[in-house]
Structures are given as C-alpha cells and as structure tokens.
Design a protein around this nucleic acid. Structure first.
Lengths: 157, 157
DNA sequence: TATTGTTATACTCTATAACTATA
DNA sequence: TATAGTTATAGAGTATAACAATA
C-alpha cells in the first residue's frame, strides 16, 4: 500500500533548508555574525555596489530593511556611510577595519561550514544538486530580474 | 581564471529554499493560510498527536510557539481545545468544520504548488535530490531525534 | 517630478522564563 | 516533584507608507 502522503519535494526542500540554515546561522552566530550581516559584507566586498538600492537588491531585501541592518552595523562599527560628493543623495557604504575583520572571520566560518556540509559528497553530485535547485526555483519563481550572483535572499519571516 | 568566490552550496541551497519558500508562502496565503498553520493542520490530520508537546515536536517548534499559533487558529475557529477527561492536564486539539475546510483548501494549494515546482523534473531526479538533501542535512544536523515524518520545521527567523 | 535613503510603525515567527493546573 | 500547557516578554528579520533631502 503506497504512502497516501508522500512528502512533497517542496516540503522536503523546506525541511532541509531550515535544518541547514539553522546550522549555518549558529555557525555565523558563533563567529559573531548573522546571515544578513554576512550577505551584506559579502556583497560589499564582491559587488562594490554604487548605491544602497543596488546593495539591497543584491542581498535580496528592501531598502528600508537594508537601512535597518546598516544602522546596526554602523552602531557596531563595521561600516561607515558617507555622502557622495558628486551626488549627495548617495550614501557610500564602506567597511571599517573592524568590518574587514568580521568579514574575514565570517568567511572562515562560512567556508568551514561549507566543507562540513559537503563532506562525502562528490563534486559531480554538488553540480547535479545545483542544477536541480535551479530548475525547481525557475519553476516557481516570478520573472527573475536578479542579475547579481548572490541574489536570492528574499524570505518572509 | 577560476572564480575566486564560487557560490557555496549552502548559500545556493539557502537561495533556492528562500525563493521556493516565498512562493509557497504566497500560494498558502492566497488559500488563506500560512506555513505554520498548514503544518499544524497536516500533523493533526496525519499523526493525531496525543498531546500538544507531540504536535509541537512533529511541527518542529516549541510548545509555547505552538500555543501561540493554536490561539490564533482557535480565534479563527479552525480548532477546538478540550481537556482530556482522564488526564485534565492534556488538551485535545481537534479540527472544526471550518478547520477541515481550510485544511482541504491548503492541501489543494500545496499539491498544486508541488506540481508546478516539479514540472519537467523526472521522478528519478526528484529521488536524487531528496537523497542529496538528506545527506547534506545529516552532515550538519545535530543528533536527529525527530521521528515524525514531517519533522524539521525549526527555523530561526 | 524622480531618485536616494531614512524614519516610523507593525507584522510574523520564533524563543525563554515564569507561571497555573494537574498528577 | 514532574508533566501539560499558557502567559508574558522579547528579539530577529522583514515589510509598507510617509517623509526629507537632493537632483
């Protein structure tokens, strides 16, 4: 007699992502960070976004939400915001020394976590997984406007 | 020149899960529900848990968090809580007619969503994905105590 | 008027700690 | 004392709407 309620793949994905995400959160917290902070630092290093709008899009959150996090990061001494002389509407977000330090620490935590995560999983399997995730995402995603390599953090919560 | 920052599989998983989860949230919201409500209804139907503690474990949340949701579901007329005559500490949670209706509607939404999600993905590929997700989860999960088929909703948010 | 960003406010989900009632 | 559940409180992350400043 077949299972009348096979676990839907979406729910299975949700379970896995929550378990993995929770573990990642803990790893980042131990390193003194959080997922949003890590993604913001990462995008600052990689994309060098010109505006906060670009940064928010890259991270996958709203501008107001980004301001929220930047305020905290500013208070923590991780970033500075200075007006662009050429266009005073623009805030130039830059890492402080402390921000660089935290970035390196979080990167180390992220790398270590990823090693643990993929332990015993072959490169080809990771590639397969990536492909499948991309296909599933495409199936339910609205018209993808995200061109940032790191886009995708959108969540509701 | 190789990418100095290949997207870690954990982050890729997180992206996919957020995108898919967000879409699922929207689908459930359109059907008048939410993920926690759906999981609670589902577990009530499937596991027939004897206590709220069991239900909370099955859903993957704390008892107090469950009470929070049950209060809302009670106020919305989806469930009733009645004391067990044999052991008056125990609350028997039961679906009302309205609760049954919402359950059916959410199930329909969930099934439709899953069909959309796996469109064009072969059964074997889904199986592969499930296996890989399980392996990744096992790599970073703390000693799994969850024996419920639906366990895993834990999240931090 | 349009753009950039902030402030104010609030929602959802979650958690811990302290409590009541029952056993 | 232990168990079942609730209440009180709080925190993280997110969002929308209204706003100020600049262009």
């Amino acid at each position: 007699m077949p299972d009348p309620f096979p676990v839907p793949i979406g729910l299975r994905l949700n379970q896995a992502a929550r378990a993995v995400g929770r573990a990642f959160d803990e790893a980042l917290a131990e390193a003194g960070g959080s997922l949003p902070v890590w993604l913001i630092l990462l995008n600052l290093k990689i994309c060098r976004p010109g505006t906060q709008r670009e940064l928010a899009e890259a991270v996958g959150i709203r501008e107001a939400t980004l301001t929220h996090h930047l305020n905290a990061m500013d208070a923590a001494g991780l970033i500075t915001r200075t007006r662009d002389a050429g266009n005073r509407r623009i805030q130039l977000v830059q890492l402080t020394e402390a921000g660089e330090t935290v970035f390196l620490r979080l990167r180390q935590a992220a790398v270590a976590f990823d090693e643990q995560l993929r332990a015993g999983v072959a490169e080809a399997e990771i590639a397969t997984l990536t492909t499948l995730l991309t296909r599933l995402t495409a199936n339910v995603a609205e018209p993808p406007s995200a061109d940032s390599p790191w886009a995708g953090l959108t969540g509701s919560h």
